[in-house]
């Protein structure tokens, strides 16, 4: 039986202006599972992802691969879980694609001689082989998304958090991303309000409404429940 890769209980986030972005959120994810985190704009999806990797101060319990989320465990947690930002422009900051993809592995202690091979392998697995010497800044939006995904995948995460991965992609780029994500066998928590995208990539869903879990279950059941989707402002 699969082990839990992520266990969250009583997770709350309150911003300095007093806004309760998350309110006692609780759920568990198993190794290799793909879960959609659906909700309307402002439901707390991005905040939840940011709090799992410790970018946002939170209360409650977060266990990533059995490691409790604390200030002193952040380096270990970030060796296990990676976050793909909504805007790839923010995630790519080095001169070439190869440098950007190599950045994580080098920081996590990979052998410098092995890194170019790892970079080439990762790019090839995402269908962007040969992009090594290109300037990330000059790529199309879809290509930037894939390079950003390569940059986080090269870190070898067990859990991948994706923030609105299909946003801004054309149909071809979206289909390509679906294919790529379906070929990645690590656990994925995907924040999105694109229900069709969630349906083809994920097996289950967690529905957020105003920082609370409104429902969770198999993705097909959630997508078919029009009353639920209407009540959480997704229809």
């Amino acid at each position: 039986m699969s082990q839990p890769i992520l266990a969250i209980s009583e997770l709350s986030v309150t911003y300095p202006n007093g806004h309760h972005a998350l309110d006692r959120v609780a759920f568990t994810m198993l190794e290799g599972e793909s879960v959609a985190l659906v909700g309307a704009n402002g439901a707390g999806k991005s905040t939840l992802l940011a709090s799992i990797v410790g970018l946002v101060q939170s209360e409650g319990s977060v266990l990533v691969d059995g490691i409790p989320l604390r200030r002193n465990t952040l380096p270990d947690i970030r060796g296990v879980v990676q976050l793909l930002f909504q805007n790839p422009q923010d995630q790519l900051f080095l001169p070439t694609v190869a440098d950007d993809v190599a950045f994580g592995p080098l920081n996590f202690g990979a052998c410098a001689e092995d890194v170019p091979r790892l970079v080439a392998q990762t790019l090839k697995s995402l269908g962007i082989a040969g992009y090594e010497d290109r300037d990330p800044h000059r790529l199309s939006f879809g290509e930037k998304k894939l390079v950003a995904l390569a940059a986080v995948m090269a870190c070898g995460p067990k859990l991948l958090l994706l923030d609105e991965p299909s946003a801004g992609l054309d149909p071809r780029g979206r289909a390509n991303l679906v294919r790529v994500l379906n070929n990645i066998d690590v656990a994925k928590l995907i924040a999105t309000h694109d229900l069709e995208f969630a349906r083809v990539v994920c097996s289950s869903a967690i529905v957020l409404l105003q920082g609370r879990v409104a429902a969770q279950g198999p993705i097909d059941d959630i997508v078919a429940d029009h009353d639920l989707l209407e009540s959480v402002l997704l229809l």
Binding site: V53, L55, P75, R78, G79, Q82, L83, F85, N87, D90, Q91, F93, F103, G104, N107, F108, A151, V152, C155
Partner: peptide
């Protein structure tokens, strides 16, 4: 955002 991205990748 860039600083966060760097930190998350072990910088």
């Amino acid at each position: 955002d860039v600083a966060n991205a760097m930190e998350l990748r072990g910088f």
